[in-house]
Structure formats: structure tokens, C-alpha cells
Design a protein around this nucleic acid. Sequence first.
DNA 1: TTGAGAGTATAGGCATTGCCTATGGAATTT
DNA 2: AAATTCCATAGGCAATGCCTATACTCTCAA
Lengths: 288, 288
Amino acid sequence: MEFHQLRYVCAIAETGSFSRAAERCQIAQPSLSQQVLKLEEDLGTKLFDRLGRSVRLTEAGRAFIPHARSILEQIETARSSVADKNMDVRGSVSVGAIPTIAPYLMPRFTAAFAKKYPDAKLRIVEETTPVLVESLRDLSLDLAILALPLRHKDLELFPIRTEPLFAVVPKDHPYAGAESLALRDLRGEPFVMLRDGHCFRDLSIAACTHARITPNIAFESAQFSSLLGMVTAGVGISLVPEMAIDRNAGCRYVRISDPRATRTIVAAILRGRSFNRVQTAFLAGIRN
Amino acid sequence: MEFHQLRYVCAIAETGSFSRAAERCQIAQPSLSQQVLKLEEDLGTKLFDRLGRSVRLTEAGRAFIPHARSILEQIETARSSVADKNMDVRGSVSVGAIPTIAPYLMPRFTAAFAKKYPDAKLRIVEETTPVLVESLRDLSLDLAILALPLRHKDLELFPIRTEPLFAVVPKDHPYAGAESLALRDLRGEPFVMLRDGHCFRDLSIAACTHARITPNIAFESAQFSSLLGMVTAGVGISLVPEMAIDRNAGCRYVRISDPRATRTIVAAILRGRSFNRVQTAFLAGIRN
DNA sequence: TTGAGAGTATAGGCATTGCCTATGGAATTT
DNA sequence: AAATTCCATAGGCAATGCCTATACTCTCAA
């Protein structure tokens, strides 16, 4: 039994003629005749009586045709359900972002995205890189906004942006009015930094090590805003990515001139994943 | 979209692996892989994510699989419904018989048939040959028990029995004690016969004509029993087929020795008709 | 009664399809 | 690091579905 055979027998049942059914199905009449014969052999019974020049359903045929019609209808329903799912703007997307990106990138972007896809279901989580990578792997997250470097071959990465690092200094700091400075200029300064586990801390230390300075870490925290408060209080200076600049705080931001003092933000997905319309739109949107 | 593709994707959904699905479907894994790819191209979306060495349904796949399962189930239901109909002992059969056969053949046979097929639905009608032939043609009858000669190419005939003709004479007739007689011996005798429209009348007259006698028809009726009454009363003699012999009547039956003085009874169906189990059984039964 | 027309069935040919085996590529396990 | 496992690709081939041509039968009109 094949689908085209079902289409042919239904066409015969509707038109009352092999020839007209063949026209409707856009095949030659002998081809249709052969396929009907084949189906009848497969089922072990005649579906049509050939009475001279007219054709009539047999009892078995009358029993069969409603099933055949239903199957063909369900094929269309199956196609539609897949097409709908594929184009559904009511889909969901789960996105993770690391804490040094989430508060600066996600609010504005997700507000704009929700406006564009009002029926989409967004789920945003803020976690560290290892946690987010694991969630991508177990498929509880569709997308993660991370920072390089990453060494996961099973992830497919889409660059979003590369931003310079800035030194945050107290208002009365000698470098407060400088247009830029080199990392080596910060040798001997006390630092306030994110604690272990944050990839930005690793990035900062890597940049310092490359500039041959060993940062004296006077204070650690889990969020930039705490760090900024400490800088304002004169406890020490810090490094932040450009997106974390807060113009209203009592600090000054000075661009780091070292060419390697940058952070590349990426969107990461698990390699091999297929996405629905909403997920695809989110990924496309956040890259622009 | 083809049935085998649906079988393959359902097997993957159930086993979680292309390789195990291929085993279950008894085809090589590359063949299954290609068919899944073809279905995905046809639908325009991925049904499965290939994640390293594991496979997982996509959203579109999760939407599709229930439909695919339902379609495959319905295919089996369709097959079953046809097979059931083909083997159903509760089917119906409509049979016609001409008046010179019906009262002698149908009662005993239909009683035996009803005992053998208690759930079958029998419908028996008694009509003349032209009416029965027309009913076969418009499909209101499945089978007709008729007598030769017939000249209908659209009918398929199955011989039941050939029986000799008998002369019916009064008890005190000179031939009453004869073992047999030739038709020519009846020249000059008055006849009582069935009226026009009955094929047995045509048969009788044809036999007489062939024997070179012109029967003097003193009385006509529509049934043998009336004819028998007239013979008993001495109004004339008659011809009857063997099956119409009534041993309890006040007449004597003498076999006609002319070799052409016979009647062949046949079961007739419309050429090209397919039959259900009950109709097939009836036809087979009445031929034995 | 005869010939034309209409409809289904058969025959043979051919492009396409579904399956095969062999093997490549990548991930996972030992 | 090597072996194993799983899916994907490649090339070959038998089976299939369609084609055209035509046979056969029935119906209709002259």
C-alpha cells in the first residue's frame, strides 16, 4: 500500500471512472489502472467492479475508501502541523547569559524582541559559563551569550561583538583625566576584581599577565556594581568591559590601549541543533 | 512522503537511534538515513537533531510523530476492515429465481444455507427471466437462477443441472402406464401450458416444433400447480421439467425420450462483479 | 447490423527510486 | 592514543512507477 495508490482509488471513487481519475491525478490511465490492480493484489480483494464501461465500488471498496480518505487527510494535517511549528511565532526560546553581560545586553534586547514577537515565550537565565555550557548540552538551554575564549568543540559560536576594556579609577585618581592608558601603567595599583569562577576575571588576569603586571587584588565580588562602589570609595581600581560603563557612578573610565585588552562576546549553540522560528529570530537579532 | 518513511521515523523516535531503527525495520542503516533525509527535505524541516552520537526529536519532529503513528495505525485499520469485509459471514446476498424453479429448488436450499450461515442476510425474489436479468444489471440482485437458453453476453453463467422433460397425463390416459414416449406421439393431443412470458413455455414450444408437432393449447396459466389441476380434470396434457413432478397429484408422469427435450438450469451473475464471502458461498453451494 | 467511440487492461521500454555494500567523518569509550 | 560506535556520503543495481502503443470489450449511432 502506498500513498499514491490511495490517492488514485479515492479519485476513482469520486469520479466513477479510471480515465477521469487519471486526468485528475495527472497520470496516464494505464498507469492508474496498474496501480489500482497492485493495491487490490496487496489487499487480496477487489475494490472496484469493472462492469462493462462503468466502474463501481465493491463492498470491500466501500469499506476501504473512508479509511483511505482519512489517511490522506491526516497526511495533510501532519504536513500542516510541521509547517505551522516551523513558522510558529508563538514558539519558545531559552537563553542564558553570563553575569558580566546579562544586565547590560539582555534587558534592552529582550524588550525589543518581545515587542517584535509578542507571542514568543522567552526564558532568560543568568549563570556562569560552565553552568550555561552544561545547560546547552542537556538541551535545557537553546542559546547562551558567552565571552571568548571557549574551548568546546561541540558548540557552534556566532560572534556578536568585540569590545575594549576600560580601567575604572576614583574621581581624584592621577589617571582620572587621561584619555587612555597602558596596562603596565597600573603596576603597583591595588585592584578590586570579580571572584574566581567568572570568566571575566580570567580574562582580566590574562591581560595583566600579558602586560607583565601582577594585580594586587584588594577586594573581590560577584558583580560589577559592587566593584564600582569600592572604586568610588577609593579601595582600589578595576577593569571592566565597555558595556559595563556606568556614567552615573562616582568614577572615571579610562580606555586600556593594549590591543589584546578586549572581550569578544559570542552567541553559542550546541552543534547539530535545529531551531524553531523564534529561536532563529533571536539568534539573528542578537547578532545585529 | 511515503509510508516506509513514516515507519522509519517512528522507529527512530522509539529506539532513539538510526542504527537500532534500521535493525527494527530490517534495512541497512545508510538506507534509513537517506529516507529520513528525504522526508525532512520533503517537509522542509528537520525532524531529528543529530547531536554527536545521539539523536533527538526536534520540535517539528515532536509535532510530526503523533501524526505519523496515527497514519500507520489507520493503514492497519484500513487493511483489517477490508479483510473483515472479505471474510464476514454476516454479509448479504440477493437471489432471484424464475417461477418454474423457485418453489422446487429454493426452499430446501435456502433452509440448508441459512443453517450453515446463520448470520447471513438472504433475500429471495421470484420473477420472470427478463425482470431478473434487469435486476442483475442494476445490481439490485447478486445472483439469478435461470434456465437456458440465454443470450446475454454481460452475464456469466454457472451450470447447475440439466433435467429431462416429462409429459403429464390424466390417470386414465392411454399413455399413463408408458415408461417413456416421444414428443411426436403427442400429436393431436390438447395441451395446457404456461402463458407467454415464461421461458419454460418457449422451451416447450421449441421442443414441440423440433419434433414437428404444433401443440393445441387448450388452457394457459401462470403456475404449474394450476396446470396439474387441469390435467387431472382431463382438460389436456402438459410438459414439465423433472423437478416439477408432484407424486401426490392425480396424474401420471411419463419421461419424454427426445434427446433435446431437456432444461438446463444455471446460476447467472453480472460479468465483472466481485462477491463477498456469503455470495461466494451461495454460488458455490447451489452448484452442488 | 456495422462501424465509430469510449473505457479498462496488457505489453514493453525507460527514468527514477530504494535498497545494497563500502567507507568517510566525528564523537565517545577504553 | 587507539578502538569502537553512530550517522552521512558514494556508487552500484534491482525494483518500481510511469510512459506510449495497442488490444479487448462494451456502448452508441447510423
